[in-house]
Each structure stands twice: as structure tokens, then as C-alpha cells.
């Protein structure tokens, strides 16, 4: 099975996992409306982690798509770049650009959904502000790439997407919890008045992400070591 197929299956698995967790931990009752409602800021740690899985799934699906687009064509590029690092720098830059585009579309889509839901029911749709934060993280994603200087593998790119999904909440927390930037809150958060509820977001969440970040960096290091031994044309 090709690696991108495995990744696609993994993505579907993650999505299912998310739905099961959402059903069991988030709302009790499984409805589409409850899924959307679950992202309000009264969530506890477990509910928030479940919420992250959603973004991990999106990031994974996104990357599976990107990988399938690039993998076969990559050989032609590798030969011409002559150096693996040059090829993957270019690849990751392309992934980054597409990620930005992807998230802009993602935000627009959810904005439309939020308006529809708001018009048709009394449900308060609070996903929008988080997604706007997500957009900011696209910039952080690029920064992370240059910072770590790890543009050697599409798999590294994948892990960076995961890290970026994690960072999303870190920045979200710093922006919205305990005040943050009032101007940004007003711009990004129409229901600003409700934000005091954010303060009950989880202190230990940040610690978890630092741990995850360190873990990802370790994995990236291992991948880089292994990368030099890859047979580029080998198909499992």
C-alpha cells in the first residue's frame, strides 16, 4: 500500500476517533449541532483535547492530499535540485503556501456555517475566532520551519503540521485567556463579552504542548537521520 494511502486511512481513523470521543466525552448526545456547540470555552481539558483531534484530522487529511500530489512528481524535482535539502525546502514552502490557502478557505467555510447556524437556531457558534487564530498560526508554521531549519522531508513537513495544530491552541490561549489583546479580541471575537469564560481554560494545556513539541522535535531528528537512507523509488 502506498504511503499516502496509509496516511489517508490514518486520517479517516483519526476522524472516526474524533467522532467517537466527541460522542462519549464532549456532549453525551451525538448530534451535528452538539459537535459545533462543543467548542465553546466552557470545555474541560478532555473536551479541549477532543477538539484538538479535529484539527489534527484536518491537518492530516490536508497533508495526505498534498503528499499524494507531490510524491510521484518529486523524483523529477529531486534529480534536478541535486540536493535533497533543496528539494524539500521547495516542497515545504509549497506546502506552506497551500496551507495558508487551505485555512483561508476553511475559515470562510466555517464563517458561512456559523451564520447559517446562527440564523436557524439559538446556538452560539464560537468556532470562528479559533479559526482566525488558526490563520495566524499559518505564519507561525512558516516561522517554525525556518527556525528548526528542518525542511528535509515531507514527513517532517507532516510533523510540523501537527506541531502547528498544537501551537494553534497555545496562541489561542495566549490571545484569548486572561484578557490578551483587547483589539484583537474585538476584531476576531464578535461575542467578546462572553470571553470571561475563557479564563477557565486549562493551565496544564500549555505544559502538554511543550511536551508534545519536544517529542515532535525528537521524532523529527530521528526522521532526518533515517532520511539519508531512503530509497526514493521503493514502493511498499
Amino acid at each position: 500500500m502506498k504511503s499516502q494511502n496509509k496516511l489517508a486511512f490514518l486520517s479517516i481513523g483519526l476522524l472516526l476517533f474524533y467522532l467517537i470521543l466527541a460522542k462519549n466525552y464532549l456532549f453525551g448526545k451525538f448530534t451535528i449541532q452538539n459537535l459545533f456547540r462543543g467548542v465553546d470555552f466552557g470545555a474541560n481539558t478532555m473536551q479541549t483535547l477532543v477538539f484538538i483531534f479535529f484539527f489534527f484530522t484536518i491537518a492530516t487529511l490536508n497533508f495526505a492530499l498534498l503528499q499524494s500530489w507531490f510524491s510521484d512528481w518529486l523524483i523529477l524535482q529531486l534529480i534536478r535540485y541535486k540536493k535533497i535539502s533543496h528539494a524539500f525546502k521547495n516542497l515545504n514552502e509549497t506546502i506552506f503556501k497551500l496551507n495558508v490557502l487551505f485555512h483561508i478557505m476553511f475559515i470562510i467555510l466555517f464563517f458561512v456555517f456559523s451564520e447559517l447556524f446562527h440564523a436557524s437556531s439559538s446556538i452560539s457558534f464560537s468556532l470562528l475566532s479559533m479559526l482566525l487564530t488558526n490563520f495566524l498560526i499559518c505564519n507561525l508554521y512558516m516561522l517554525t520551519q525556518f527556525l528548526f531549519n528542518l525542511y528535509f522531508s515531507d514527513r517532517v513537513g507532516y510533523f510540523l503540521v501537527l506541531v502547528y495544530a498544537g501551537l494553534f491552541l497555545m496562541v489561542g490561549e495566549s490571545l484569548f485567556v486572561n484578557g490578551g489583546s483587547v483589539i484583537f479580541q474585538i476584531l476576531a471575537w464578535p461575542q467578546f463579552i462572553c470571553q470571561q469564560r475563557l479564563s477557565i481554560l486549562h493551565v496544564n494545556l500549555l505544559v502538554w504542548y511543550v511536551i508534545l513539541l519536544v517529542l515532535f522535535m525528537l521524532v523529527e531528528g530521528l526522521i532526518y537521520g533515517r532520511l539519508r537512507q531512503i530509497d526514493w523509488l521503493r514502493r511498499d
Binding site: I75, L76, L78, I79, Y81, K82, K83, I84
Partner: peptide, 9 residues
Amino acid sequence: IDFSPETGI
């Protein structure tokens, strides 16, 4: 070197 230079494949 990583790859054979000036190669068409």
C-alpha cells in the same frame, strides 16, 4: 553528492 548531477531520467 546526493544525486547524479546533470542527469535526465
